[in-house]
Nucleic acid binder design. Structure first.
Lengths: 194, 194
DNA sequence: AAACTTTTGGATGAGACGTAAAAAAAGAAT
DNA sequence: ATTCTTTTTTTACGTCTCATCCAAAAGTTT
């Protein structure tokens, strides 16, 4: 009996993700959101709660889609070294989409809202361990394959990969010199060749 | 004949650096600054101009002091491998000061104000090349010493170091597990022994 | 018709940045 | 010493934007 919503909830949420991703939390006003989401102000509050609540939902959506995307990307590549190489090529933005200069929503949030926000810290902390685990599992697969030496400290290397990934997402906002980043990634992945 | 200022201009600027560093540009209000700097509102505008102008001055001061600090730190260590190791130990924050959780003012600014700010982009771009050059020169010293192989691509490795440095400054805000970062740095520096 | 949501349009109170005019202070000159 | 000039400090204000909420009107399904 209720009047149905005239918009798709997750579709609109994706627009909020794009906006917060590009501009961050503090410089995105509710008015910006109202204009960009294409729904009414009251509908916005009704559906997602206040600004912070909407931001939390947007961040969570990004996180999940990001993790899932990473897992699927790697799952499709049996050659671990090649898989990592390609993953980082995408991260660097060889195919220069408009999203490259926005960096990573998670990284941007880390630097903007920490320290001083326990809830966000919790979410970001979970994200960190989740992605490091993805890396570690993938590396283990390579060790089982015989592609990677058993002597490799997979935990430390997973951490190295994640740190490098974060650094790339920062530097992508400054430099459009992809070759430089690509070379440094190659150097790093050379560790896997003993 | 003029009445002298009752405060030290650079001393107060350092307080502004600390505040912008911790909170970023948008969530630091002029009122916060007035309270923290200990000078009057009008004095603030008189001396440093508007908020953005003050921010620029603060960022520049941080950049210069950061670069100089890095150069002097490395200049004092003739063993290049050991020097890099120690530099990153400091960056990781083994001696856990209160500044560790603030990350790096430059990194924070990169993610907060880019894309969309050409002036800031210019400053951050200069900073990037300056620090990469510091790394590259230091590595060259190691090659001349015979400490590092002549086959090393110093430019790529300098880029790797800088990227890693940025990543560390992000992750320092999330995790207080310094050992993990330390291990990954060791793994990276192991490339120099290859 | 009833029930519920969306839309419209505005009210509100807080806080933002920046400025202007008056008051106070410090040195210089007579 | 006193007055004058210049600058800082104080205080108050103006204008704007912010986030949030509310009441009434319009629309859609059962």
């Amino acid at each position: 009996m209720p009047r149905p919503k005239t918009f798709d909830e997750t579709e609109v949420l994706d627009k909020a993700v794009a906006l917060f991703w590009k501009q961050g939390y503090h410089s995105t006003s509710m008015q910006h959101l109202v204009d960009a989401l294409g729904i009414n102000r009251a509908s916005l509050y009704n559906t997602y709660g206040d600004k912070r609540s909407l931001f939390d939902k947007a961040l969570e959506r990004y996180r999940i889609s990001n993790q899932k995307g990473m897992e699927e990307f790697l799952a499709g590549r049996t050659s671990v070294k090649q898989g990592l190489k390609e993953l980082f090529e995408v991260a660097i933005g060889k195919s220069d989409g408009p999203s490259t200069e926005k960096g990573c929503f998670v990284v941007n949030t880390t630097t903007e809202l920490l320290p001083g926000d326990p809830e966000i810290l919790k979410a970001l902390s979970e994200n960190k361990t989740a992605i490091e685990r993805i890396f570690e599992n993938y590396l283990s697969k390579g060790v089982q394959n015989g592609e990677i030496s058993k002597t490799l400290d997979t935990k430390a290397f997973a951490s190295l990969l994640f740190t490098q990934y974060n650094g790339i997402k920062v530097l992508s906002k400054i430099s459009r010199n992809r070759q430089e980043l690509s070379d440094s990634v190659s150097l790093m992945l050379g560790i896997l060749d003993g």
